[in-house]
Simulated assay, not measured.
Amino acid sequence: MRLIDAHIHLDHYTDQDAAGIIENSPFIDALISVSWDLHSCKKNFELSQRYNKVKPAFGFHPEQELPSPLQVELLLVWIAEHHKDMAAVGEIGLPYYLREQQKVTKRQYDEYLHILEMFIKSAKQWDKPVVLHAVYEDAPIVCELLEKHSVKKAHFHWFKGDKKTITRMIHNGYYISVTPDVVYEEEIQQLVHAYPLEQIMVETDGPWPFEGPFHGRMTHPAMMEESLKIIAKLKDIPVEVVAKTVLDTTKLFYQID
């Protein structure tokens, strides 16, 4: 199978492991390496300069402490200078898990929301897709922002949410990607069953570790083969057809030759 990892944090691997993934995976056509902050953006940019397979996305991951206004400004200025070198704006979104842990106040949440809107507006200006961390009750809020700014090319990675939001996302033409947990998580299997195949991609979110048959193993794009097999089973479509459809979808979405 030819594969594209639609969401991976290559800069979070050791240099040796990242090089091994890139250099020793001839079946991988591309890796969308998303960023965490300015330092992460710069590292992903360097990886993309070294390896043609690495397609960087530049952004600010929301599951971390709020940046200062100066940090946000420096990040946006740097991304503006390098926007022609990126595949997308990402990873961006809202801090669902920090809020669940009661580590984010209402005022702080509003600040995260403001930062997210700045990134969405910038993506619209640069005509770039957005890679989103937006799950459960955060997802409708993000949908509202995307609709407000007429951003169509939206990729909700490792999505979880209610049926109403799923229907809204499908109608709006938004894409999702699923991780290897589709092999053993019923919630993700139900999502795949509901979502059109033409709007599904696969990812690892590596180096995030997985359970089930992947327990104790370093997260590797090769795991996506098992994801595709499960998607094929859930959709009752030959795996070869699923693999080609997902590959073509990802190439088109991220403008990969």
Rank of each mutant, 00 (worst) to 15 (best):
D85M: 15
E240P: 13
K153T: 14
P67I: 14
L113A: 08
D15K: 15
Y174H: 14
I230E: 02
Q16L: 12
Y136D: 11
A88Q: 04
A6K: 01
Y254L: 06
N52G: 13
N172E: 10
L75D: 01
L74R: 11
P196A: 10
K128A: 04
S68E: 13
K235D: 03
A232S: 03
R168F: 11
H39M: 14
F58P: 05
E23L: 15
F159V: 11
L38C: 05
L75R: 02
V72A: 09
K160F: 13
G173D: 05
L70Q: 15
D11Y: 00
F214L: 09
D17H: 13
A222W: 07
M86H: 08
L76F: 04
L145D: 03
D11F: 00
F119S: 02
L252R: 09
A154M: 02
V239M: 01
L31M: 12
R168V: 03
E137Y: 12
M86V: 14
V241S: 15
E187H: 13
Y97P: 10
L31T: 01
K251G: 06
V104W: 07
F159T: 08
F210Y: 03
A243E: 03
V135A: 08
L247W: 07
E81H: 11
Y51W: 10
H9R: 06
S33Q: 08
I4Y: 00
D37P: 05
Y195Q: 05
A6G: 02
E147P: 08
H149M: 06
Y112H: 05
T167C: 07
S122G: 12
P140L: 09
Y136A: 05
Y97I: 07
E225M: 09
I188S: 06
V131F: 00
A80Q: 15
K235G: 04
V135W: 10
K233Q: 04
C41D: 01
V151K: 09
P180A: 03
E240A: 15
H171M: 10
W36N: 14
H114G: 11
Q189R: 01
P180D: 11
Q102S: 13
E63M: 05
T250I: 08
D127H: 12
L98H: 06
R168W: 11
D236C: 06
M223Q: 13
A123P: 00
P140F: 08
S150G: 11
V246L: 07
L191T: 09
K124M: 06
Q102M: 12
P221F: 03
F58K: 04
I200G: 00
T204F: 01
P140V: 04
L66C: 12
D17C: 09
V151D: 07
